[in-house]
Amino acid sequence: MKTNGKKVIFIDTELQLINCICSKVTVEIYVGDELDYIGEILSYTDNALEVNGGRYLIGNCEIWACGNYLKVE
């Protein structure tokens, strides 16, 4: 995970995932060492994340929230 000096939070719990979805936080999804997606998570199941344009198996990716993942608007 390359932060390039920005604040990021590794998302590894269900509560963090729910917060990202409800707050519409921008996340980065990595598959291996490659950045594969930047955007919002639309929904999730026990096995997969749904994003704009596709799905990721939860066990095959890393999710990083960019900035404050508990936005208040």
Rank of each mutant, 00 (worst) to 15 (best):
I18W: 02
I63G: 01
L57D: 11
N19P: 00
T3E: 08
I38C: 12
S23G: 10
I18Y: 02
Y69K: 06
I38E: 15
N19C: 07
K6A: 07
Y30I: 02
Y37K: 11
F10N: 07
L70R: 13
E40D: 12
E40K: 15
T13V: 04
D12H: 12
E62P: 00
V27F: 02
Y56T: 04
L15N: 09
E40Y: 08
N52L: 14
G5E: 03
E62Q: 13
I29W: 01
L70C: 12
L42D: 09
I63F: 10
T3H: 09
Q16G: 05
E73N: 14
G32L: 05
I38P: 00
E28L: 11
L15F: 03
Y44E: 00
C61L: 07
E62D: 14
L49H: 03
K71L: 12
K24G: 10
L15K: 13
D33N: 13
G39N: 08
G67E: 04
Y69M: 14
E34P: 00
E14D: 09
N60A: 14
V51F: 06
T3D: 11
T13W: 03
K71I: 08
Y30T: 01
V72H: 11
N52K: 15
L42S: 09
E28S: 08
F10Y: 13
D33A: 11
E50A: 11
E62F: 10
G67I: 08
W64H: 07
V31D: 05
D12W: 04
N47K: 14
G53C: 07
K71A: 13
N4K: 12
L35T: 04
N68S: 10
T3M: 07
G5T: 02
S43V: 00
I29S: 02
V8F: 04
V25C: 09
Y30K: 02
V72S: 15
L49K: 03
